[in-house]
Structures are given as structure tokens and as C-alpha cells.
Design a protein around this nucleic acid. Structure first.
Length: 670
DNA sequence: TGCCGAGGCCTTTTT
DNA sequence: GGCCTCGGCA
């Protein structure tokens, strides 16, 4: 029995009960959005709508997993047919089934940012475009914008056209797709092949899109294609929390939805169940400075004792870290707040290091989400590259990554030779090598042929192992030994064996993760391909089921990745003028000020009880220290709501003694 | 020809 | 701190 009436307020109830026809839900920060969505899905299932007819699209893998789990919890059902995924993961799913029609093979590789940069670079080299004159990073972004039609071809970027075309062609030759393709190609298929479109429309009769304000134009297009026939499309968003416009998300989605689904029902959730009055007043006051927004005013019934927002000016980032660490420790002791209820947020990943150091030296357990994730670490990426090449040999980018890692004699000359050969044959490096391996003509340098032979034999041997069902983790273990990656690590880190050992430890962990995945009873396809699909889309360590239970860990993350989360006690580090609003962002376009303000708004509204902001007087940049100014957004928070914090005095010894005594009692009791 | 150390470059946010 | 490039060495 669901008992919706008891669990939801009037607006939430209406939203959860409106299943037919398009619905637009404007859900303010902390308004119980996730709760509403999960109950809505549960309600759907209860009224007899089959799991397989529901497609819920979210923004992050984490959100998808959480939603899935909460629905499972409410309904107590096995949810094997319910699709809750990100747009990108859904794209992969569709492409694995249908990509053949576009001339790709369904073992295609998915290229992330790193692979993409490598491919552009490689392509540029081939076209003899000087790589120094080319800002690879910007070029990659530009290609993405062009591909998703955010930016038209113009006179300024016309010169990049040959490079772009060649890039695209290479993707195809390598049987690879990039992140944009995961949305673009499904749209292409659905638009071009009505029978496929019909199939998907018939399958997914009910669509839901969470974080609609962060949906990009092409994602919207995909959603519209799937939903415009059934018209059972429910989108949930908050324009004040739109913080991904640089990725092609913008308020136009809302306008388009209103135009495409004129009969929609509109519901606003304005009651905030998360934050105290003070915090909400600060957030409301801040966001009211934005011109472009749907007016709404969040309100809350939660009273908060005293001032719940404080500001502290540490001398430098080191003092900032110490301050935060000490505050966490004393709040934990005095107020018995468990570690997992603390959040430490910041604008850029680069702030992680100093904060991490401070927490580490204070023995405070923490976890970092975002930044360079586990799967992006070099040692892990190297091994994944081997797996990718085993799965899809035509994948040149990954092949180049591993061909001489660890060193096996493929130097510059050898590579040039192979490259020239593959170019003349218009094929991938792997195909070129296969030809060379058996070629009888004697023009081939003997050393190269021998190296090629060894390398290909290695791949052949492990391909068989890796494709063997249920044998993945063992095969990976064998592979790592066979290529003597440990020897390579030692060689690379002669001066610091600790690093080598740490990296090797990561590999052990990696094997363990694969093993767990392989043996998971819920996993009905433990193949190499399905594993690769999975990890390419997982960009954070949201993966491994954390051992949250005992005391937990303090959460460190960027504001962007904190979206959708909440914390009792929130620290906001680096509230400085060049960081938020970020100088780079304003430089790019002064209009970004509003987005930066929304970002700050998102940060403030993550807090339930209290916010401690820090603003360094000086901060070490990449070259030397710089003087910092307080963020201008601080002035948009009414002064009465904020108090200036003095240096936090450390916990008195007797207080700590009390605490430890109480701990001992708690432990010895049961 | 391949390897290795020294020096210069760069980090806004993410699927 | 990591990545790339360059120049000298084996």
C-alpha cells in the first residue's frame, strides 16, 4: 500500500497522480522532488503500468542509481525491466541494438574527453597541422558545439573544417563514437528509420526527465522524438538551478516544451523541506538578482536557532583547510553530527588538494567525488585501453596508447612506418599490422615485423581469455602480469617506490571491482563489452557500494557534482572573486554571471542547518601567490543573515575526554 | 633508433 | 603533480 496522501503534500500529490499527458513540474531546491518522482513511478507500477513501458532519464549515473533504489525500496519489487538511466547510457543501449544500420559494428568504442583529444591530435598530425598553433582543448569543445549544432560553421572556424571532417571519418574507421554521438546517432536512427522509431515509441509509453533545466537541446530532441506520440511526458526542473549551459543546456528547453506540449499541466513545488529560514532567505535574496527566471518564492517551515551562515577569512588555503578540518572535528564532537552529514564544496577541482591534505592530517575520513576519478587514473586507463583494443581492435586511439606501454621497442620511427602504411591502405593500425605480420615482401624492416608479431600474438592470446564468459577478472590479472606492468611502474617511479606501489594497489583494486561486478547475481551479462560500456560512462567513483554505515565520511566535491544532494553542515571553500564567479567563465561571456550566481545558489541550498563559508586572503595559484577579493555574491546576502567567524578555537581537552568517555560507554553498552 | 632526464605547459564546471 | 617536447646518451 503506497498511501500517497500521507507521504506527499498537495502539489506533490497532484504531480505524482497525473500520469497521462504532458506535465511540467517546477520544483524548487529541496522541495521533495526526488520523493515526488519516486512515488510517481511507484504509483505508475501500482496502477498496472508495466515496468518496461517506463523510461526515466536523469542527469548523472548517481541520480539514476539512487532513483532506482528508492523506487525499489518503496515498492519492494524486483525492478528488472524498469529503465532508469542517463541520456547517454540510454543512447548506448539503443546503439548497441541499432547501430548496425549506420554501418558501425556493435562492439564500438566510446571515446571520452581524453580519447577525443588524442584523436584530434593524431588527426592534426596526419593533416600536417601544427599542433602548437592549435588549442586542442578548445578545438575539442568547438567540435562538440558544432556537432550538436550549438554553433554554426562560420568564417572564423572554417579553417578547422578539414580537421573536423577527418576526425569524424577516423571515428568511423575506428568503429568508435564520442559522447555527443551517443545522443546524435540515436536521433539520426530514429529520424531516418520509422520502423525503429515506432518500436521505441511503442516500448516506452511513459517518459520522465529529471533535472530538465540541464537537458541539452539534442537531448530534448531525443526525448521529443520518443514522447510526442504517447504525449505522456513528465519533465521536472528548476530554472534557478540550471548550471550546465556550457554543455548546451539552456532555458530554451522550457520554452520548447511549452510550445511542443501546449496541453501540458504545470505544477509548482515551492515548499522547501530542507533548509532553515535563514539559509533560504539568503538563497532567495541572492537569486532574486537574476533577471531571467520564472518567478517563484521558496518558503520553509523549518526554524533555525541563531545565525546559520558564517564567513571566515583565512590567510591562505592552508589555513582554510585547517579551519574546516577543525570545525568539522569540533562540530562532530559537540553536536554529534556524523561525518557523512558534512559537505565541503568548491568551485574548481583544483581546491581539492589543500582540503584533502588538511582532512588527512586531522585524521578525518573523507571521500572525494569528481576530479580525476579512479577510472581516469593513468594506470587504470592503460589497462582499460588494453581491454578496449581487445574488444574493438580497430580502435587506433587506444591502440596507440598501449602499443609502447610498457615499452616494447615501438619507437618514433616504427610508429611512423606503421602510420604511413595504414594511411596508404586507408585502414586502422591494427589492420595494417595484421597485413604486415603475414606479408611476404621483404621491404619490411625485420625488427618492426618481429615487434608487430609479438604484440599481435599477445593481443590474440588475451582476446580469447578476456572474451571467455566469467573469466574477465582472471584474464585481466594475467594480462597485467604478462605485460609486466609492475616492472614498468618501478621503472617510471624510480625515485619514489611508494607511488609505484600505490598505483599497483589501484590495479589490484580494479581487478577486485571487476570480480565483484562479474559475480554480482543481478548482473545478467558479465561480458567484456557490457563492462566497457559501463565504465566509460561512469566518470566518478559513485560505483562501488560504499561502506557508509559506521560514522561515514565527509563529502568533498565541486558545486556542480553536489547538485541534488544535501548536507546538514555545509562548508563552502574559496568564496573569492576570481573563483566564484569564475574569472574564466566571465571572460568567455559576461552574461555567464547569472549562471555563476545560480551555481552559488545551488551551493547555498544544499545546506540543511548551517553554512560555513571561507574566503582566503591569499591563495597559491599555479605561479605564485595571489591576493584574493571576497566574492561579489557575498554582498547579495543580507548582512543580518551572516556573521563573521573568528578563528575556531580547538576543542578543550576535557571536552574531548568527555566525548571519548561517551564513546566508550556507547560501545560497551550492547 | 629508442630511451631517459630536464624543463615548460597547464587545471571551470561533466556525460 | 602530470603531460608533452626536446636534446643528449647508449
Amino acid at each position: 500500500m503506497l498511501d500517497l496522501e500521507k507521504k506527499l503534500n498537495k502539489e506533490q500529490l497532484e504531480a505524482a497522480k497525473t500520469l497521462e499527458g504532458p506535465v511540467l513540474i517546477i520544483a524548487g531546491a529541496g522541495s521533495g522532488k526526488t520523493r515526488m518522482i519516486t512515488y510517481r513511478i511507484a504509483h505508475m507500477l501500482q496502477t498496472g503500468i508495466p515496468q518496461s513501458s517506463i523510461l526515466a532519464l536523469t542527469f548523472t549515473n548517481k541520480a539514476a542509481r539512487e532513483m532506482w533504489e528508492r523506487v525499489k525500496q518503496i515498492t519492494q519489487k524486483k525492478l528488472s525491466n524498469l529503465t532508469v538511466s542517463t541520456f547517454h547510457a540510454f543512447g548506448v543501449k539503443l546503439l548497441r541494438e541499432e547501430i548496425g544500420i549506420l554501418g558501425y559494428k556493435n562492439n564500438f568504442s566510446i571515446y571520452d574527453q581524453t580519447d577525443k583529444l588524442a584523436l584530434i591530435k593524431e588527426t592534426a598530425r596526419e593533416l600536417k597541422i601544427a599542433t602548437e598553433s592549435l588549442d586542442l582543448y578548445n578545438t575539442a569543445n568547438l567540435f562538440s558545439s558544432l556537432k550538436t549544432e550549438r554553433v554554426p560553421w562560420s568564417r572564423e572556424n572554417a579553417e578547422l573544417r578539414p580537421l573536423y571532417n577527418e576526425y569524424q571519418e577516423h571515428l568511423k574507421i575506428y568503429n568508435a563514437v564520442d559522447f555527443d554521438d551517443l545522443i546524435i546517432l540515436p536521433i539520426l536512427i530514429l529520424e531516418k528509420y520509422p520502423e525503429i522509431l515506432g518500436k521505441y515509441r511503442a516500448r516506452y509509453r511513459y517518459l520522465m526527465v529529471d533535472e530538465f533545466q540541464d537537458t541539452s537541446l539534442i537531448q530534448y530532441k531525443m526525448m521529443r522524438l520518443l514522447g510526442e506520440e504517447s504525449r505522456n511526458v513528465c519533465v521536472v526542473g528548476d530554472d534557478d538551478q540550471s548550471i550546465y549551459s556550457w554543455r548546451g543546456a539552456n532555458y530554451q528547453n522550457l520554452l520548447m516544451f511549452e510550445k511542443d506540449f501546449p496541453e501540458r499541466k504545470e505544477i509548482k513545488l515551492e515548499q522547501n523541506y530542507r533548509s532553515t529560514k535563514n539559509i533560504l532567505a539568503a538563497a532567495n535574496s541572492l537569486i532574486s538578482n537574476n533577471k531571467n527566471r520564472k518567478t517563484k518564492e521558496l518558503w520553509t517551515g523549518i526554524e533555525g536557532g541563531g545565525t546559520s551562515i558564517s564567513l571566515f577569512y583565512p590567510e591562505n588555503e592552508q589555513k582554510e583547510g585547517e579551519f574546516i578540518a577543525e570545525m568539522i572535528r569540533s562540530i562532530k564532537i559537540r553536536e554529534k553530527v556524523p561525518y557523512q552529514d558534512f559537505g565541503v564544496l568548491f568551485r574548481t577541482n583544483s581546491l581539492t588538494t589543500s582540503l584533502e591534505e588538511a582532512l588527512l592530517s586531522h585524521n578525518i575520513p573523507y571521500k572525494v567525488s569528481g576530479g580525476t576519478s579512479f577510472f581516469q587514473r593513468k594506470e587504470i586507463k592503460d589497462i582499460i585501453s588494453y581491454l578496449r583494443v581487445l574488444a574493438n581492435p580497430e580502435d587506433d586511439v587506444n591502440l596507440l596508447r598501449i602499443i609502447n606501454t610498457p615499452r616494447r621497442g615501438f619507437g618514433k620511427k616504427a610508429l611512423e612506418y606503421l602510420r604511413a602504411f595504414s594511411e596508404s591502405k586507408k585502414c586502422s593500425l591494427y589492420s595494417a599490422m595484421s597485413i604486415l605480420r603475414w606479408a611476404s615482401d621483404s621491404g619490411i624492416p625485420e625488427k618492426i615485423r618481429r615487434d608487430v608479431e609479438d604484440f599481435l600474438s599477445l593481443l590474440d592470446f588475451y582476446r580469447e581469455k578476456v572474451l571467455h564468459p566469467k573469466g574477465l577478472s582472471e584474464a585481466v590479472k594475467g594480462l597485467i602480469e604478462a605485460i609486466d606492468y609492475w616492472g614498468y611502474l618501478i621503472l617510471e617511479h624510480q625515485k619514489n617506490e611508494k607511488i609505484a606501489r600505490w598505483k599497483y594497489g589501484n590495479l589490484v583494486k580494479f581487478i577486485e571491482i571487476i570480480r565483484r561486478w562479474e559475480e554480482d547475481p543481478d548482473n545478467d551479462d558479465p561480458s567484456l563489452f557490457s563492462y566497457l560500456n559501463r565504465i566509460t560512462l561512469i566518470t566518478r567513483e559513485e560505483d562501488s557500494e560504499e561502506e557508509e554505515s559506521k560514522g561515514g565520511k565527509v563529502n568533498l566535491m565541486t558545486i556542480h557534482s553536489a547538485k541534488g544532494l544535501e548536507f546538514d553542515i555545509l562548508f563552502l571553500a574559496g568564496v573569492e572573486a576570481h573563483l566564484i564567479p569564475h574569472a574564466k567563465s566571465l571572460e568567455e561571456n559576461p552574461d555567464n554571471l547569472e549562471e555563476e550566481r545560480r551555481l552559488f545558489y545551488v551551493a547555498l541550498t544544499r545546506a540543511k542547518k548551517r553554512i560555513h563559508m571561507t574566503c582566503c586572503r591569499t591563495r597559491k595559484g599555479i605561479r605564485g601567490s595571489i591576493e584574493c577579493q571576497p566574492s561579489p555574491f557575498l554582498e547579495e546576502i543580507p548582512a543580518g543573515l551572516m556573521e563573521l567567524q573568528q578563528e575556531e578555537k580547538t576543542v578543550e581537552p576535557e571536552e574531548a575526554a568527555d566525548y571519548f568517555a561517551s564513546l566508550r560507554n556507547a560501545v560497551s553498552k550492547p
